[in-house]
Simulated assay, not measured.
Amino acid sequence: MKNLLLSLGLLVGVTGAAHAQNGVKYGLKGGFNGATFSGTDSKGSEYKAGFAAGGFLNFGFSDLVSIQPELLYSQKGASIDNFQGASGTTLKSTVGYLDVPLLVRLTAGDDGKGPFFEAGPQGSFVLHNRDFTQTGGNDTQSTKNTSTDDLNKVVIGYVAGIGYQITSGLSLGLRYSGDISQVYKDGASRAYAFKPGSTQLNGNNPNVHNSVFQFQVGYAFGGR
């Protein structure tokens, strides 16, 4: 009980200090993702386009330092050519996540404006999946899989980025988001008997991680 009261007191004190010094801001952001797979079995994985959008809170301790938790819908996945070793066969995997990064932001300008650097951990929760496989040639064939059975429902990663706070509200940012956890569960695949980039069908899920570059535009309200 003492630890709980101490933690609550510390949280209230930190929030109060942030509000007193630089205010609490809230806002919206969105932008484009360039997503692919990295890791042991990522051979043949290429970038595919997606988007991210959501909201954030910014707790400013000073013009230099702030804490920024975010809640974002983010499209990840990859485009894989010559899928299952078959020439002309392409897999486009789109996995929708709810990303929850907790970032420390350092801003180099005056009055909270100017260039900034941000970094911190991120938890991601699977919302949906769409795998679209297409075979070219004269007789085009396509298949679609929307199952999430093979996916790890919660993954842990990190975020690091740079940007520019143009005004007290408007900002532009470029960040990299990488996952420590694997995209797929270990063991046999329920949806595919494959390993991307391999000519052998081994029946196991691939060892790959999400790797995403993000360009974002944000606008904050509130603060001083």
Rank of each mutant, 00 (worst) to 15 (best):
154 V>R: 06
24 V>R: 02
191 A>I: 05
119 A>K: 01
10 L>S: 04
169 G>H: 13
137 G>W: 13
86 A>F: 15
98 L>G: 03
58 N>H: 08
65 V>N: 00
82 N>F: 06
201 L>N: 15
27 G>H: 03
13 G>H: 03
150 D>I: 09
128 H>G: 15
139 D>I: 14
156 I>Q: 00
94 T>L: 00
74 S>H: 10
210 N>P: 01
5 L>I: 12
16 G>F: 04
125 F>T: 01
204 N>M: 15
156 I>N: 00
156 I>H: 01
125 F>A: 01
39 G>F: 07
111 D>K: 14
82 N>V: 02
178 G>Q: 02
44 G>C: 12
185 K>R: 11
2 K>N: 11
218 G>P: 04
103 L>K: 02
218 G>H: 04
1 M>C: 08
219 Y>S: 08
155 V>C: 03
55 G>N: 04
83 F>K: 01
191 A>Q: 13
212 V>P: 03
91 L>V: 00
14 V>M: 12
31 G>E: 03
106 L>F: 09
40 T>R: 15
31 G>M: 10
179 D>Q: 13
167 T>G: 05
195 K>N: 14
38 S>M: 12
202 N>G: 04
56 F>M: 14
70 E>C: 10
43 K>L: 11
205 N>Y: 06
98 L>I: 07
88 G>Q: 03
33 N>T: 15
14 V>A: 15
214 Q>M: 10
191 A>K: 07
154 V>Q: 07
14 V>H: 00
